[in-house]
Every structure is written in C-alpha cells, then in structure tokens.
Nucleic acid binder design. Sequence first.
DNA 1: AGCACA
Length: 435
Amino acid sequence: MASVSSQPQFRYTQPPSKVLHLRNLPWECTEEELIELGKPFGKVVNTKCNVGANKNQAFIEFADLNQAIAMISYYASSSEPAQIRGKTVYLQYSNRQEIVNNKTTADTAGNVLLVTIEGNEARQVSIEVLHLALIQFSDTETASSAKNALDSRSIPRYLLPEHVGPCTLRITYSAHTDLSVKFQSHRSRDYTNPYLPVAPSAIDAAGQLSVGVDGKKLEPESNVLLASIENMQYAVTLDVLHTVFSAFGLVQKIAMFEKNGGLQALIQYPDVQTAVVAKEALEGHCIYDGGFCKLHLSYSRHTDLSIKVNNDRSRDYTIPIHGAMIQPSILGQQPTGGPMSGATAAPYNGGQYPGPPPSSGGWAPPQHMHMQMPMQNYPYNMPSGPGAAPPGPPGTMPPGSLPPGSMPLEMGPGTMHMQNPNGLPQPPAMPPYSQ
DNA sequence: AGCACA
C-alpha cells in the first residue's frame, strides 16, 4: 500500500491546501491585515481571524491552491519572515481544505442549535465545565421553537446551584446538521443511542457508569458505598472508617482492599437512603485535617457484602453474639464498669473475631479526632444487651433511648473525639464535613 | 507558537 509520502517529512509539514493557517498574530488582527498579507500571492477569497484559545490565529483561503503554495514557498526561503504590524507571523498549510464561516449559517435555520451560556459562573452550569453546547433536534421546526423560546432567556434559578449567578442563553443556528457524538460523557451525549460507548472520564473508580442517556448521573443508588481514599498520608483503619460512616446510620459491614495502589473500602448500610445521605455528606471531604485522606464515594453494585472473615480489613458488624459488644471498635475503648462490659463481652468467640483490631502500624485508634456527629443517628449498634430492643430505622432512635453506659467515653453530644494518627490533638477536621 | 461551534 502506497503511503502518502515515502520521503522523510518534517514533522509539522502539512499537505498543501489553499487554506493557510497563521499563528502568532498580533492582538485583534483584522481581516484587512490578513488580506493585505496574502494579496501579493493571489486572490484571498476568505479569511477567519481570532481563532484559537488566544485568538491569535487565523486562516487565509486563496482562490487557487497554487497561490497558497506561492505564499508558503516565498516565505520558506525569504530572509524576511511574514509580518503583521512588525510581528512575525508563522504560516503553514491548514489541515482543512476550506474555511467554514459560521457567520453565514447563524441566520439559516437548521436542526442544530449553538448555545452559549453566559454568566460569571457559566462554567459551573451543569456540574461539569460546560460552556458551549450544540443541541440537535430532530427537525428544524423543533429547533426554531426552542431557539425562539430560550434565546436570551436566563436559566431558571432553581436549576442552578445556589452559588451560581445568573446565566443567560445565547442561541444561534449551527452549521451542523448531524452532530457526531463519539462518547457519552459529561460534555457530550447522544440521547438516541444508548449503546454508545461511555467516555473513560465518565466511569468512576468502581468501574461503574456515572452518566446515563437521561442526562443525569447514572449511578444506581445502593446501600453499599465504595470509598476510595486520596492523599492517604495517614493510615486509614477499619475503625476510622466505621466511626466516620457510623455518623449516618448503622454500618453493617466494611471491607477494605487495595486497588490501583490506593486504598478502597466498601461500606454497607442497611438501606439505600442512609447510604445516599452518607455519600452526599462525605463526598470529597477529608478524614484528617490538612487535606489528608480525602474520601471519594460512589455507589457499589453490591447490595450485600460477603465478609468471609473478620479482621483488620473487613468486618461484619451484624453478626449477633450473645451479650457481646458487637463493635467495640467504634468506641476505641470500652466503657468500663458498664452493664455491657462484663463477662459476656469476652467477645470474638469461636474465632470469628480475632479481637479488636491492632493499632495498625502504631497508629493510635482514632479517639481524638474531633468530629461532629449527628448523635441521634450515631450509636445504632451500640452495645445492646440481651433483650434490648433492636435498633430502629435511621433517625428514629431518640438519643435518650440509649442504654446507660453505652455512650462511648470522651464522647459528648455531637462530638466524637478521635486521635490523629500522629497522636497530636486535631482541630476540628470535619465540621460536619466541610473539607 | 501549532487548526475554527462540543
């Protein structure tokens, strides 16, 4: 098969085109200046300026290919570079064969609209950085009615995040008739093709789809959360996770594992609602002050974790043991002398529990990390003795209903004191989960 | 200083 050119080519040479690409243009270079530059070599039939991110690029289109070649050839061997206002302009063949001006199409009705979102915080519209949108309707009539109804209108307040200022839509017709959407992503979507591949950027750490053809986050909610931990300067133990996630309800099971060199954990709640609340509250927040151990949460596909063995990486907190403290771990330390700390608490019988997890790697259990916890939601599975009523659903257990002595030591209402791994007292790390 | 409406 014959290649385009078997000769060694300079990396940046382009095949000839009657369109030339110009770069390094002076600020706000005019069409007249472009024509002036090209005129000696032929008839300039079209130009386009203010191209590119810096608006310092342009295109010149000649009537004939030979004219473009003449201009390129001349400056290739000239001692004086092409200049506009004394500034050197770099020329090369464009990789396109003609200039497409959208000016002419803006007034021509079509089925594709070009929408510009104006506003100081327009970039925050629609979660992702979305500035421009091309929207294809099935027909021109639908497109024009949408344009008429929406052009120059502001996006309704209730559709915007609170902190985002007014955003105005500017809508024109696009020259496109059919958008070529390659991926479903946060920035492009083909609503007519559910089989379109999903962009890698739209798949979360669990390998799950996070966007769907409905335009919303497609993360099927689950009672099991997948947590990945970024910037893990401190060890994150099972106990730490259990403490953090227990703030929102009963934590049934936790499984920790390594993935991609980072730590991930699956946290199981009894119900989806609790997981949703926990995810919303904790996503993006750090377990420790200073940006350490930042949590990223998504919904797992699991609904019931299979915990084979209870150890320092995984635990099933639901396994009933007669009179035993089911989860001493969250206390860091057992209440002494309490009704539940007696002989029956000789826990972990049957070898099921290897005992309280070791303070892994010398990290102290998280006893002095200051965290604000919604107490009415906190101690669901605090020690419940024989005959104690089973914990109610989230939010239903009044604080006063806790059995005496079940309150962890050093724990005041709404605050859990935990210890920073380095043993130093920590300033509030997560006033309910502010960073 | 490197290609135009995602």
